[in-house]
Amino acid sequence: MQETVLFVDDEKSYLAYTTSIFENKGLRILTASSAMEALEIIDQEHVSVVVSDNEMPGMRGLELLAKIKELSPHTVKIMMTGSADLSTALAAINSGEVFRFVVKPWKKSEMLRAVKDGIRRHRILQSLAREDEYILHSLAQTIELKDASTRGHCDRVATLALKIAAELHISVDRQREIKYGSWLHDCGKIGVPEAILNAERALTPKEFDVIKKHTIWGCDVVRKANLSKTVQDIVLYHHERWDGKGYPCGLKGEDTPLEAQIVAVADVCDALTMDRPYRKGLCRDEFLRTIVEMQGTNLAPHLVDTLLQILERD
C-alpha cells in the first residue's frame, strides 16, 4: 500500500520544492498551506507522516501537531523549524509530540532522511497496532465470558457503530478508535461480581451503583494500557444520556464526545434486541417504537435518525 505524506507550510515555494524532490519516490504527496487545511485532510485521509512548519499565521505547527496526535495517533509528526526555535523542537520531541525536526533552510538529503525514518516509524506503529487489535479483541471476548447472555455483544456494537460512523463520513483513523472503544466499552465489568451481571431479576439500587462503576473502572484500564483519549472517552461516557440523566458524569447533549454518543446508540440497539436473563429481546416493531421514544432523551436525535436510515436499508 502506498504511504501518504502531508507537507504543511504557508510558504508555497517550500511546498512546490518539497513535492518535486519526492517525485518517483513511491509515496503519495499531499500539501496544505495552513493548519486548518491540514486538519481537514487528516480528518479524511490516512496520513502516514506529516511534516509541518512551526511558524505559520494563525495556528502554529506545534499546536497543529498536538491536534493531529488526537485525531490520528499513528501519524508520525515531523516539525520544520528555524534555528532560533530549536529549544521548542527539542521539548516537543522529549514530550512525544514530535518524532523529529529539520532546521530551515533544510538540505534535500535531510528532508529525505527524515521522511524515510518517519515512514519506517509508521510501519512499526502499524505492525504493533495489528498485534494490539488481536489482544484488544481477545480481552473483550474474555470479559464477555463472565456474562454468557452478552456473548458477541462487543462485536455487534462495533459493527453497528462503524456503520453509523461511516454514514457520518468520520475519518478512517477515528473509525479505528471507535472500533477499539466498542470492543472495550464494557471492559470495566471485569470488576463487577457475576452474581450481579447474571441476575435474573431487577437489580437493587446498591447493585446498580456497582454496575455504574464499570465505566470508571474500564476507563482506568484503557488509560493504563496507553490507549488513546478517544477510546478512554468511549469507555467512560457510553452511558451518558442526551438529556443529562446518564452516568458517570451526567453530561448533556454535545458535551458527550461524538464517538461515545455513537457507541451509546449501537450499545442500546443491541441491548434492546438481544435476550437477557431478566427479559426477552424486542421484536423489530417494538424496537423501532422504543428507539424513537429514546430520541432526544437517552440518545442524540441526529444519531437515531442515522441509525433508522441504516436499518431501513439493511
Rank of each mutant, 00 (worst) to 15 (best):
K163C: 08
I29Q: 00
M294N: 02
A202G: 09
L272E: 08
I170N: 06
K179F: 05
V221S: 02
G26I: 05
V8K: 00
G82P: 05
E37A: 11
P301F: 06
E37T: 07
E110A: 06
A140R: 01
L71C: 01
P248W: 05
Q295C: 13
A264S: 15
L308S: 12
H214C: 08
P105L: 11
T256F: 08
I143M: 15
T75I: 01
I143W: 10
Y134E: 13
L303G: 08
G61L: 10
T256W: 03
Y237Q: 04
R241V: 06
R276F: 05
T4Q: 12
D275Q: 07
V221P: 00
T142I: 12
A38Q: 05
D285K: 14
A260E: 11
V98L: 07
K179L: 11
A32L: 02
I41N: 05
G82T: 01
V5W: 02
F7Y: 09
C187N: 10
T81A: 00
T31L: 04
V76P: 04
R313Y: 09
Y134P: 02
S52C: 05
L112T: 05
T142Y: 14
L136S: 07
Y237R: 02
K252Y: 04
N226E: 13
P301G: 06
C219W: 12
C249S: 13
L299S: 13
S95I: 04
E293N: 15
R313T: 14
D155G: 11
A16T: 12
V49I: 03
D85N: 08
E133C: 06
L30M: 11
L311R: 08
D147V: 11
K12P: 00
L311E: 13
R313E: 15
G188Q: 12
L125Y: 08
R241M: 11
T306A: 15
Q309M: 09
T88S: 08
V172D: 10
I21Y: 07
D285T: 15
